[in-house]
Design a protein around this nucleic acid. Structure first.
Length: 647
RNA sequence: GCCCUUGUAGCUCAGUCGGUAGAGUGCAUCCUUGGUAAGGAUGAGGUCAGCAGUUCAAUCCUGCUCAAGGGCUCCA
């Protein structure tokens, strides 16, 4: 037979292994990096190097260890190596599953005493020993009955449960370093590939991800094709840590948490609140320009109201309750009820529609103690929430407008984003017809906007389907922010109507939507994305004027006043410190414009301009500096297609 | 809520194999008038997360509670 490998034709005998054929075509160096192969271009199934070339195969595509697919195989194999090491050191541990994940792999074990990171050195040493031994992975096919018997004999009950759930006649088992594991494969040819690995953390995880099941002990690890790639990955983790908004929030004096006073609730410090205020002001203006009305409802509503809306039945565990005199009240977890009551406050004509109510609404949700995370997951947060009440025929157009607003906001910050449409969940209210028409309105609007999207089956809200938008930050992480939800239930429960052209009462449709999602979360994401160096329009301090000696104090005071008069957030640093020290502090505070005023500058009536990236623009007059800062601040708005101009 | 780890000065962290604690940084005062990422000195600052227990004695050992970090489940 003749087989094509990377453009070369190679002669082979029937029954030759994949490795034998590849070895003829590839240089020794290249062949060493191959972990698996596929028999035909685009084929799903991957082959082990040790498996025979399938009959009729005309081409083999090698999969290299450093390719995304190769890495997956490598990591999965490393998970096996880790399990082998663990079984060696802790013979009583029972194995469950050990897949590769985005940045590495994990393996879940059932052990009496959960693992701790103190166990890592021993496990890692054993893994290195196995890797150095370059032991082969061997594959065998067993009937289900045989496999069940075998794993039962080993006491691996979890594996037995998995095998019994597999819908096939035979299963494959891989053995490596004396450790046999149920596995689809493929695997790297030998354990020598698992050399560049590192155990990362331990965690509890439920068997099959169900919190009713037994808690297993999970070990996370990662592995790469070589030490260099592993080191680069570890460096990137450091980079993410460097950007952590909790760290930067403290260093830049933006916000703080008082765990003993109010866990999961933010204390905004002056600088952070300034950032937030700038963002809020901009966002209110943008909404006014786009035809929204700004409203505000109460923080507490009587429990009966929550019962009427359905929140009490579907969302009670996440709500806080209190009492005023004899009456029970619920703290609002959402803003929609007030908005509907505001709509219902007067009779509406079809001419009034759509009504768009916008509120920077403070909501409280009881989040379980283990899930709180800085600004990204809190118990009290502010939604940039709006409810659009419109006639059914206006629905699609309104959704499209919201999508445009999302697009413009993402462009403003240079975020890319992904769209997903979520459909009806199990716990839900409303008729099938209503769900279908609402889901189709969402899909149509997304298609009209020309955006690629995915479908999340069963992930909708209890009252209707939704569109979720995840933004991608500059180091490739995804964040859920925007959401657009159609609701046909609440207008009915609160008997909202409008008078149509025909003089009859009609039922409007409602859209819940939030673009930033939560201001707290959004600001946390901004801080991480920009590593604290917020764009000039959002920077709490846009310019800092530094004196060299106290001879510059007077000139600096004058310049600060001038800049402030021009709408620029400027501050003076006239402390009795050396210039180098002040520059360092301004730089660490991520102030975009660092203005140095010494003897020369006082003479010339200006300042020396240094940017936070270290560039020095030389001497400039106050007017020039002001123009520079204003242009810089307005630039993103022009690029982002915002209707609101920063000026 | 569950699993692992952690909780010492505003921040970052040492430390005490049980005898109530220390550094750097920040803060205050003084000296220094210095040109683009850290000038020097002195001083103030701690119920060692909280509550119980063991002990002559607990910041240290044990238990519980609270909170944080990493996960699981859930979610904006």
């Amino acid at each position: 037979m003749e087989v094509r490998v990377e453009g070369q034709m190679v002669e082979g005998q029937a029954g030759d292994s994949v490795a034998a054929v590849l070895q003829k075509a590839l240089s020794g160096k290249k062949f060493k990096a191959v972990v698996a192969a596929r028999a035909a271009a685009g084929a799903e199934e991957l082959l082990d190097l040790s498996s025979p070339v399938p009959a009729g195969c005309t081409g083999l595509e090698p999969v290299y260890a450093d390719s995304p697919e190769g890495l997956q195989i490598l990591r999965h194999s490393t998970a096996h190596v880790m399990a082998a090491a663990v079984k060696q050191l802790f013979p009583k541990a029972r194995v469950t599953i050990g897949p590769s994940i985005e940045s590495g792999f994990y393996y879940d074990f059932d052990v009496e005493k959960p693992f701790s990171s103190e166990d890592f050195p021993a496990i890692e040493a054993e893994m290195q020993r196995i890797a150095n031994a370059r032991e082969p992975f061997t594959r065998e096919e067993l009937s289900k009955a045989e496999a069940v018997e075998r794993f039962k004999a080993m006491g691996e009950d979890y594996k037995v449960e998995i095998i019994e759930g597999i819908d096939a006649d035979t299963v494959s088992v891989y053995t490596c370093s004396g450790f046999a594991d149920l596995c689809r494969g493929p695997h790297v040819p030998h354990t020598g590939f698992a050399k560049a690995s590192k155990l990362m953390s331990v965690a509890g995880a439920y068997w099959r991800g169900d919190e009713k099941n037994r808690m297993l002990s999970r070990i996370y690890g990662t592995a790469f094709a070589d030490e260099k790639a592993l080191a680069a990955h570890l460096k990137q983790i450091e980079e993410a840590k460097r950007r952590d908004h909790r760290k930067l929030g403290r260093e830049l004096s933006l916000f703080t948490f008082k765990e003993d006073v109010a866990p999961g609730m933010v204390f905004w410090l002056p600088k952070g609140m300034l950032v937030r205020t700038i963002l809020e002001d901009f966002w209110r203006k943008e909404h006014l320009k786009r035809g929204y009305d700004i409203v505000q409802g109460p923080q507490l509503l009587r429990v009966e109201t929550w019962q009427k809306s359905g929140h009490y039945d579907h969302y009670r565990e996440n709500m806080y309750f209190t009492q005023i005199e004899e009456d029970a009240y619920g703290v609002k977890p959402m803003n929609c009820i007030s908005h509907m009551l505001i709509y219902g406050n007067e009779l509406h004509s079809y001419r009034d529609l759509p009504q768009r109510y916008f509120e920077l609404g403070v909501v409280h949700r009881h989040e379980k103690s283990g899930v709180l995370h800085g600004l990204l997951r809190v118990r009290q947060f502010t939604q940039d929430d709006a409810h659009i009440i419109c006639a059914p025929e206006q629905l699609e157009g309104e959704i499209l407008e919201v999508i445009h607003l999302i697009r413009d906001l993402m462009n403003l910050f240079g975020f890319e984003y992904k769209v997903a449409v979520s459909t009806r969940p199990e716990s839900s209210i409303g008729t099938d017809e209503a769900w279908e028409s609402a889901t189709s309105a969402l899909v149509q609007a997304v298609e009209k906007a020309g955006l690629p999207y995915t479908i999340n089956e069963g992930d909708g809200a209890f009252y209707g389907p939704k569109i979720d938008v995840r933004l991608l930050d500059c180091i490739g992480r995804e964040w859920q922010c925007s959401t657009i939800q159609v609701d046909f239930t609440l207008p009915e429960r609160f008997d909202l109507t409008y008078v149509g052209q025909d003089g009859e009462r009609h039922r409007p449709v409602m859209v819940h939507r939030a673009i930033m999602g939560s201001l707290e979360r959004f600001i946390g994401i901004l801080v991480e994305n920009f590593a604290g160096a917020l764009p000039t329009w959002l920077a709490p301090e846009q310019a800092r004027l530094l004196t060299v000696t106290e001879a510059g104090d007077e000139a600096v005071a004058g310049m600060v006043e001038e800049l402030k008069a021009l709408g620029i957030r400027a501050q003076a640093d006239t402390r009795n410190e050396k210039l180098g020290f002040k520059v360092r502090e301004a730089q660490l505070a991520k102030v975009p414009y660092i203005l140095v005023v010494g003897e020369k500058e006082v003479q010339a009536g200006g300042a020396n301009v240094r940017l936070r990236n270290g560039d020095n623009l030389g001497l400039k007059s106050v007017a020039e500096i002001a123009a520079l800062i204003r242009t810089d601040a307005e630039e993103p708005f022009k690029q982002g297609g915002m209707r609101y101009s920063f000026a």
